[in-house]
């Protein structure tokens, strides 16, 4: 779905080079790399917020910069590493925000949107949270609600920037399991950056790593932990 060829990425100055990277449809990708290796820069490039300095980045054969806002909304949705919640914004309303591409100028939620939201609440098993303020729930629950927002958008890919960085062990596990389930049930592509090596190796279909030489490498799920550590850290 996303193809990058001979791409240099970075803010003004080249940070990392990508020789050839193909992100395929319906898979769970973990992005590994040291602090400062360019994980966030890569995600920003992937989402089209940052133009590649050089090379070719295609989304289903089309240049990312040539995509209209509307087309981009159909491909990409985003979950930040930390969402603090908003006073008086309920979990249901947050997920409803994902419907924005489908609603009218005032953002009115239709019956169809409501059905979609119900379906997502059920899939993520957070029906009991739907009326609570996004500020009053736990960090883990908030992250799952944010994934719900991304799902409501019905985009083909969900990009997550270190979604588990601020979570405890059980919530980390839960979040990754939910991502795995989402990939299996919805057929979307999920790509998340992380420092969590064990969870990535256990759950991701593929590992994208930024190695010490600042180059991208993609590994299949079965790769040995020691090899990754040697190459990346």
């Amino acid at each position: 779905m996303f193809k990058l060829k001979n791409v240099d990425i970075g803010y003004k100055k080249k940070l990392v080079h990508i020789t050839d990277l193909h992100v395929e449809k319906g898979k769970l990708y973990a992005l590994l790399g040291k602090n400062g290796s360019g994980k966030t820069t890569f995600l920003q490039t992937l989402m089209g917020n940052l133009a590649p300095l050089k090379g070719e980045y295609l989304v289903d054969g089309k240049e990312i910069q040539a995509l209209s806002k509307r087309e981009k909304m159909r491909y990409l949705s985003y979950v930040p590493s930390k969402f603090y919640g908003v006073e008086h914004l309920s979990v249901r309303e947050l997920i409803g925000m994902g419907r924005a591409p489908f609603t009218n100028v005032l953002g009115r939620i239709s019956q169809r949107d409501n059905d979609k939201i119900d379906e997502i609440l059920a899939l993520l098993k957070i029906e009991h949270l739907q009326c609570l303020s996004t500020q009053k729930i736990s960090d883990g629950e908030r992250q799952i609600a944010m994934i719900g927002k991304a799902l409501a958008q019905e985009a083909r890919a969900i990009i997550l920037d270190e979604p588990t960085a601020f979570l405890d062990y059980s919530n980390r596990l839960k979040t990754i399991q939910i991502l795995k389930e989402v990939v299996a049930k919805k057929g979307v592509t999920v790509l998340f950056s992380t420092h969590n090596l064990d969870l990535s190796l256990n759950y991701a279909d593929n590992i994208i790593s930024i190695n010490k030489e600042k180059e991208f490498e993609v590994f299949e799920a079965g790769i040995a932990k020691e090899l990754i550590i040697e190459k990346v850290y």
Binding site: M47, P80, L94, M97, A100, T103, L106, Q153
Partner: peptide, 19 residues
């Protein structure tokens, strides 16, 4: 109204939702 509502969850998110 709509862009303002979306801005409360951050500019990056709002942007990918069409703002």
């Amino acid at each position: 109204t709509k862009p303002l509502n979306l801005l409360v969850i951050g500019e990056e998110n709002a942007s990918l939702l069409g703002v």
